[in-house]
């Protein structure tokens, strides 16, 4: 179980430093597979059918189907590598280390109950923070989709670490929502690419607030 958590943490650091979308997608796929194994490993002694179904559908969706879908999007739209992120890649990795420290600090401060594994919580928090960080600092819409997936993986890992027994239908519902969400994002990437001829989120500037006050300079934005 600890091994899986460490792999999750390492995969995040890897994504932070990768500029090629294909590599990043592959790393997220690996992350999805290990994440899917997490609930099995956690309750190895009290394995039930529900946990198995959940784990396998998790691996199937997050580890196989979604990455394949994203690879298709990359192939068809010809999305280039992230050349000029808002925070450079080397600095991103450094910030990643800081975020790791932060998530250790948060997890220890939370004074979690005994049954909750600390390392598991740390890795979950780290995934969430890295997801948010990537969301803010990457320009390509595809990287934002990946960032959302990383963050959602983190929330999922947090749920596993707290070991809340949701009914299977709710768990599957959560999984399906994430799947459909990323699916729609992927579909939108096609349209975005066609309309804008690029997918740089910071160059989506059709909808700037046009306020009379701003134009006349009375109120500075």
């Amino acid at each position: 179980m600890n091994t899986i958590c460490i792999i999750l943490i390492l995969s995040c650091l890897f994504i932070l430093g990768s500029s090629r979308p294909r590599v990043a997608i592959r790393v997220v796929a690996i992350q999805g597979i290990f994440l899917g194994m997490l609930p099995i490993v956690r309750s190895l002694h009290s394995l039930s059918l529900a946990i198995l179904i959940l784990a396998f559908s998790g691996i199937l969706f997050k580890g196989i189907v979604l990455p394949l879908l994203m690879q298709t999007v990359v192939k068809q739209t010809g999305i280039q590598r992230e050349t000029d992120p808002i925070v450079p890649f080397s600095a991103s990795i450094l910030i990643g280390v800081v975020l790791l420290g932060l998530s250790v600090w948060i997890s220890t401060q939370m004074s979690l109950p005994e049954r909750v594994s600390l390392l598991n919580t740390v890795s979950a928090m780290f995934l969430i923070l890295v997801g948010l960080f990537l969301m803010i600092t990457r320009r390509k819409a595809l990287m934002q989709t990946l960032a959302y997936l990383v963050m959602e993986n983190g929330v999922y890992a947090l749920g596993v670490s707290i070991s809340l027994d949701f009914p299977l239908i709710v768990e599957l519902g959560i999984l399906l929502d994430v799947f459909v969400g990323v699916f729609i994002m992927g579909n939108m990437l096609f349209h975005l690419d066609r309309e804008f001829q690029h997918t740089d989120v910071d160059r989506f500037t059709e909808l700037v607030e046009t306020n009379k006050l701003n134009e006349s300079g009375e109120v500075k934005p």
Partner: peptide, 18 residues
């Protein structure tokens, strides 16, 4: 499916999902 609505929907999807 024009630029404005795509931009709006992308923002909606990302912000609300997060």
């Amino acid at each position: 499916q024009n630029r404005r609505s795509l931009e709006a929907a992308w923002k909606y999807l990302i912000l609300c999902s997060v």
